[in-house]
Design a protein around this nucleic acid. Structure first.
Lengths: 216, 216
DNA sequence: AGCGCCATCCGGGACGCCCCCCATTTGCGC
DNA sequence: GCGCAAATGGGGGGCGTCCCGGATGGCGCT
């Protein structure tokens, strides 16, 4: 019988221990690796003894979302499941765009996690019920006022900031151009990075270019 | 009679004083503004009382090359003349790609600077004799071994570093992946930024994407 | 043999980025 | 009115970026 070989990525050892306990209880699931940050996850996940990567979103060195992008783009066939803290639905859309096949909350029942792993391995997407509702709400919302861009959790002000950051302006310059305090610009930048699950300005630039907000 | 209205951008007041002295001696040239850094240059140069911007390459906040890119892309009709320290021909090609109409050395005779201003305003390119020689040498060089990329002053090692930087790796991560000291990676990055006349990693990302070194 | 270029490494310092806490004001929807 | 999101700001702190001035060894060219 073929087992699904799983890599767990979370910066809290306790969480990894808990997840491992849940998964090892199932005969068809086996945890073959544990890592504590996103960079390690990419490194380890590229080796072909891993079938499924279970990634926490917030990790040091590299977020789970970025690790997901790296892994799915660099290794065909690897499945990725994103773990989100609490019941925050914020990163759902970004996670799906990162190539994740599934998205579950840490707070879900153990049953759901196991089911998510199996669904993901069958190639089916798995979303926790709240995520499905969020997707539907988003769909309706978007259909109602049909002018909004396809996906972009950013506010108009934040988009403005992103553009300037991607044009290589420093915080001080942006504050000067928009007549704001540097603190406010920093605040916006922090919020933007959190929303998109990114680490720094460099990732933001590529995002801005992909979205056509600025020229390369 | 219509005078050419000139903005001088250099971080050394002494140099600006000298340039102003040279230019004010000509009846058809008038210095209408002096600024001390690249960001100021962009801000001031966008106002339409400036016909020609004379930009030093190395300036605080924003290099002359980046200011040139900003200005030429955001204000049609503005001419740009790049001033280079010493007889360093390094930035010549990058300057031409930045939309500069002319490129002169600080050490050239005053006569040349005035001629460069006039040629630039007539829409003709102006290069100091050494630059012409450099261009020819480059042309011959490229024609001989026709496979080299069109322009890229970077060494293979530097290109490797640029790719990793553009993939949002930190210095520490790059050092780890290439098995180098962080200091070495920093040194490479500094050299790269200097060669390309850029300020920070954000500009590097856009450069890397334009050159096709990484995907957006 | 000397010169220039490349690649590697070091220490130190200024500054910007990024994060955490906190707070206020404004406007929108229920 | 009350909650909520968006936008605005402050204080403080860790760490990464970026630059400065060095140094070494290898390699090719003259």
């Amino acid at each position: 019988m073929t087992q699904t070989r799983i890599m767990l990525a979370d910066d809290h050892a306790v969480v990894r221990r808990g997840l491992r306990l849940v998964l090892e209880g199932e005969p068809d699931l086996r945890v073959v690796a544990e890592v504590g940050d996103g960079a390690e996850a990419v490194e380890r996940g590229l080796r072909d003894d891993v079938d499924l990567a279970v990634l926490d979103i917030s990790m040091p060195r590299m977020t789970g979302l970025q690790a997901a992008r790296e892994l799915t783009s660099r290794r065909e066939g690897l499945r990725v499941l994103i773990l989100s803290m609490h019941d925050n639905e914020q990163y759902l859309f970004e996670a799906l765009r990162s190539g994740a096949s599934g998205y579950v909350l840490k707070s879900v029942a153990d049953r759901d996690l196991v089911e998510a792993c199996r669904a993901t391995m069958r190639g089916e997407p798995f979303l926790y019920p709240g995520a499905v509702r969020a997707l539907m709400r988003d769909f309706v919302e978007r259909a109602r006022r049909g002018d909004t861009p396809p996906d972009d959790p950013l506010t108009p002000r934040e988009v403005e900031i992103v553009k300037l950051i991607a044009e290589a302006r420093t915080t001080r310059e942006i504050a000067g151009e928009l007549v704001l305090s540097e603190k406010t610009v920093e605040r916006h930048r922090t919020n933007i990075l959190a929303k998109l699950g990114m680490r720094d300005r460099v990732e933001l630039v590529r995002y801005a270019i992909r979205r056509g907000l600025v020229e390369p």
